[in-house]
Design a protein around this nucleic acid. Structure first.
Length: 363
DNA sequence: TAACCTTTGAAGAAG
DNA sequence: CTTCTTCAAAGGTTA
């Protein structure tokens, strides 16, 4: 449970670790350097179009366009208010400064014109497949094309989610599974919801890519979804026809994960580190150094993520993904006699402070 | 090649 | 209710 609601304060403050960062501006530049250029966007769009160039636009997508337009209008209203409240420094100049997806051309609009909001939000385009909520999030990139030829629900998803879902309303059609309350309830912060172009991660039951959905892992063939951008391994398509992959609906990211997404690049740049384990340690420290207000923003984002996730996948449970990762470490711990638990717990138990060898800027 | 490492938080299971 | 476990991201490292 997010701690922000309980006025109780143990970790959130961590004021003794308060660190001021003087290079917020640099960060912006770095983000911009990594930014998604218009050319990239155009290429991306065209590639998507090409891949989905069925003679007639799939019905689901056409209907999605309409739904999306409606949603954008609602979103515009909401965002006008929302953005006014987001002038805190943290969001300024960071990837959070706005929701970059708003700047992207709407892939659902046949003319590729900017969405309704695009002119309102001066935003740096994130890199390919960036999470609009957390603009440094690279999504797994499933070409939008899949929506064209796989508009049908993955069997398991269909059964799971469709069973108890009310019939879709005409104006909110096959964009995503429609939550009982309709699209209007979905928080605008769930920007990725609006922008499959940026995601490419997974294809939702409607055939629209969704960041929370990734093809079943454990198969390197699918790595193109995960890390690569918009490419597909040559042998992938036939395999797919042969045996459709079951997409995995990922857990929504928690506050810290969202924070990591955003700050990782910054830490990497500052510390010239690449190893994620080290980066994450730094990020963990910085997380504790954040003020309550700063953390609260991430908790709020995470809460919205969970909210939307629940709306999109009502039947989904975190347990669904249990066992999909093979773990060896736990066995190691168990073998070692007494199970120390997670490293965090282990350090807590023995009063260890792992962060001892930090380079200056990385503290 | 796949798991590990490392972080925090959420959720589910177990006691 | 409390405690424990697993997964979420990421990418270099290791077995």
């Amino acid at each position: 449970m997010p701690q922000l609601s309980s006025g109780g304060e143990e970790d959130l403050g961590a004021s003794d670790e308060m660190i001021s960062f003087k290079d917020e501006g640099d960060q912006e530049e770095k983000i911009q350097e990594n930014a998604f250029t218009e050319r990239d966007l155009a290429d991306l769009k065209s590639s998507l179009v090409n891949e989905s160039e069925a003679p007639a636009l799939p019905e689901a997508i056409r209907r999605a366009q309409d739904a999306h337009r409606v949603y954008q209008e609602k979103l515009a209203d909401h965002m006008e208010d929302g953005l006014k409240h987001q002038e805190e420094p943290m969001y300024k100049g960071s990837g959070y400064s706005s929701y970059p997806f708003l700047m992207l051309s709407d892939p659902y609009l046949s003319n590729g014109s900017m969405s309704t909001l695009s002119s309102k939000v001066p935003v740096v385009q994130p890199s390919h497949g960036v999470h609009p909520l957390t603009p440094l999030i690279p999504y797994n990139n499933e070409p939008f094309s899949h929506s064209s030829h796989s508009p049908h629900l993955p069997a398991d998803l269909n059964q799971k989610q469709g069973a108890h879902r009310p019939p879709q309303t005409p104006d909110i059609p096959a964009f995503y599974p429609i939550p009982p309350g309709g699209v209007g309830q979905i928080s605008p912060s769930m920007g990725w919801f609006t922008h499959p172009l940026m995601l490419g991660s997974g294809v939702h039951t409607t055939g629209i890519p969704h960041p929370a959905i990734v093809p079943h892992s454990g198969n390197k063939d699918m790595e193109c979804y995960d890390r690569g951008m918009l490419y597909r391994k040559p042998h992938f398509e036939p395999k797919r026809e042969k045996e459709p992959k079951k997409p995995t609906i990922k857990k929504p990211l928690n506050a810290f994960m969202l924070y990591m997404k955003e700050m990782r690049a910054k830490v990497i740049a500052e510390c010239t580190l690449k190893e994620s384990a080290a980066i994450n340690q730094i990020l963990g420290r910085r997380w504790h150094a954040l003020s309550r207000e700063e953390q609260a923003k991430y908790y709020e984002l995470a809460r919205k993520e969970r909210q939307l996730h629940m709306q999109l996948y009502p039947g989904w449970s975190a347990r669904d993904n249990y066992g999909k990762k093979k773990r060896r470490s736990r066995e190691k711990h168990q073998d070692s006699g007494s199970d120390p638990g997670s490293p965090k717990k282990c350090r807590a138990r023995f009063g260890l402070n792992q962060q001892t060898d930090w380079c200056g800027p990385c503290r």
